[in-house]
């Protein structure tokens, strides 16, 4: 399928779930959708042949988070599916039941942004150390580098104390 065929197929499937689309160059598609339609959209995409998920990115937009799922269609067309979720209650359903390969990407986003993936089998820290404070998420914009440096040092001190004991 070509880019425009994929877009018309998506429009037919999701109807008013789609807010906006952008095709900046060949083999790149950006699709903005409503957050309610997202799980349905992922199922439809998988049926269309988008079986490979490249990664999940989250961006802190001050009032809300934007979550971007990068999919690849037969390795060639890269489709970025994106939607906003409120910052006070960042909870979205997991997609590991549809695409099992997303398991580590969801854990990574949970580590760095504190977004909860409901139904994820195991949301333990992937990148952060075990004794990292639970309420600090390094890539949220409200934490400055100095705050993070403090908690990194503290985590290191705790670890040394544990090993010394």
């Amino acid at each position: 399928m070509e880019e425009d065929e994929i877009l018309s197929e998506l429009r037919r499937q999701l109807k008013e779930g789609i807010i906006d689309v952008k095709v900046p160059r060949k083999r790149r598609i950006f699709v903005w959708i409503r957050s309610e339609a997202f799980k349905n959209a992922i199922r439809r995409l998988k049926d269309m042949g988008f079986t490979h998920i490249s990664t999940i990115t989250a961006v802190d937009l001050k009032e809300s988070f934007e979550v971007i799922y990068h999919f690849a269609y037969k390795g060639s067309i890269e489709l970025s599916l994106r939607f906003n979720i409120p910052k006070e209650n960042p909870r979205i359903p997991t997609i590991t039941d549809v695409i099992p390969g997303a398991i580590l990407y969801e854990r990574e986003v949970h580590d760095l942004f504190g977004i909860d993936f409901i139904g994820h089998p195991d949301l333990i820290p992937l990148i952060l150390p075990e004794n990292w404070p639970r309420d600090i998420y390094p890539l949220r914009k409200e934490y400055s580098l100095e705050d993070l440096r403090g908690s990194i040092l503290k985590a290191g001190r705790d670890e040394r104390r544990v090993t010394a004991q």
């Binding site: 079986t51 037969k74 390795g75 060639s76 695409i99 099992p100 997303a102």
Partner: peptide, 24 residues
Amino acid sequence: AIELCAVGPTLRASGVKNDVRRDD
């Protein structure tokens, strides 16, 4: 391999013809 989104030589050694150099 497809389900778990493997990439590169690991995927190609499972018989899936997938290469960013050719596809994209």
